[in-house]
Design a protein around this nucleic acid. Structure first.
Lengths: 175, 175
DNA sequence: CCCTTTTCACCTAGGTGGTAAGAT
DNA sequence: ATCTTACCACCTAGGTGAAAAGGG
């Protein structure tokens, strides 16, 4: 499924006439597997708001990459509005052949954003190391799940994702 | 609205590693304006299957161009499957600011397909003349209309366009 | 009379969380 | 007991021709 909220970024300082590729990948935050907290009073409506460490992480995935579908494009094009990675999709299916990002459920991930300068020189491979830059925003870390563990996350998504409008019981403006 | 059926083309002979832009434009077939034939028996259900010349063409439009949204892309990418211009949209609004192709209703048009080689040389503008090639398929000519003039065209569209399924009264396989 | 514009019901296509069933 | 899968009703977003209304 899509990642929501969408990773969005505003870009400054590119060469307006040069070509760039924009891409994202996801790296594990730690080597742990998490589990939900057993409901405190038995029969309690939903789960706790914290996570328990459940042991060592499962073997890491192949580590796929998602290119922004507008890539490659000129710096001027990338800079003139917010770049939105709304087509990016996550899956837990190790055999996925739709090119989606593969993550382990119940593990924590750090999204990363990469900018690659498309070097017009013939021997551009030699300069690969100096032609890209990586940006990490720690506030975008998350725990991958197959079902929500926290009622407030569910409500936040229902309130903010237009496709979940069918589950709203009041105007999100009043929220 | 979209042009339907969609202009589609299979490409051979590109340099797999080079970049190309693919685009379309539309040129008038003649300098005439057409009109529908007055129904022969008065009260006849629909119009004739031929056109009458109604005079000289209206002033020509600015002559816009539609770039295939995947442009630019490598020759290998363009050649590996049929290229479909299904995002191309036509309008009769001379003031359109959605970048659609502007046509005069009741005039005849010839779609044209252009392949532009993206020359990596610095002074590529000098070679513009030799870096593109135009293809014209006369069987794709059509008359632009705001309402269908021929019942058989309507039925053909209803039978073949998935978005018109609501108007079908039998399976298009049996047609 | 001839053509264009606007609105509509009815589709395609696909993104939501809920829910029940399945798996370990 | 805990997590995953499959399916669903309910949305967003937008492409159809029909039909009624509008314009010259």
């Amino acid at each position: 499924r899509r990642m929501f909220p969408t990773f969005q970024v505003k870009i400054f300082g590119m060469d307006p006439m040069a070509d760039y590729m924009l891409l994202m990948d996801f790296v594990p935050v730690d080597d742990k597997r998490y589990r939900q907290v057993t409901p405190c009073p038995p029969g309690y409506a939903f789960h706790s708001s914290s996570w328990l460490v459940a042991g060592k992480a499962d073997p890491a995935t192949p580590g796929r990459v998602h290119y922004h579908p507008d890539s490659p494009a000129k710096g001027a094009q990338w800079m003139k509005q917010i770049v939105s990675f709304d087509k990016l999709k996550l899956t837990n299916n190790l055999l996925d052949d739709n090119g989606h990002i593969i993550l382990n459920s119940m593990h924590r991930y750090q999204p990363r954003f990469h900018v690659v300068y498309v070097d017009p020189r013939k021997d551009s491979e030699k300069y690969a190391e100096e032609n890209f830059k990586t940006f990490v925003f720690e506030e975008t870390r998350f725990t991958a799940v197959t079902a929500y563990q926290n009622h407030r996350i569910t409500q936040l998504k229902i309130a903010s994702n237009p496709f979940a409008k069918g589950f709203r019981d009041c105007d999100p403006e009043d929220w």
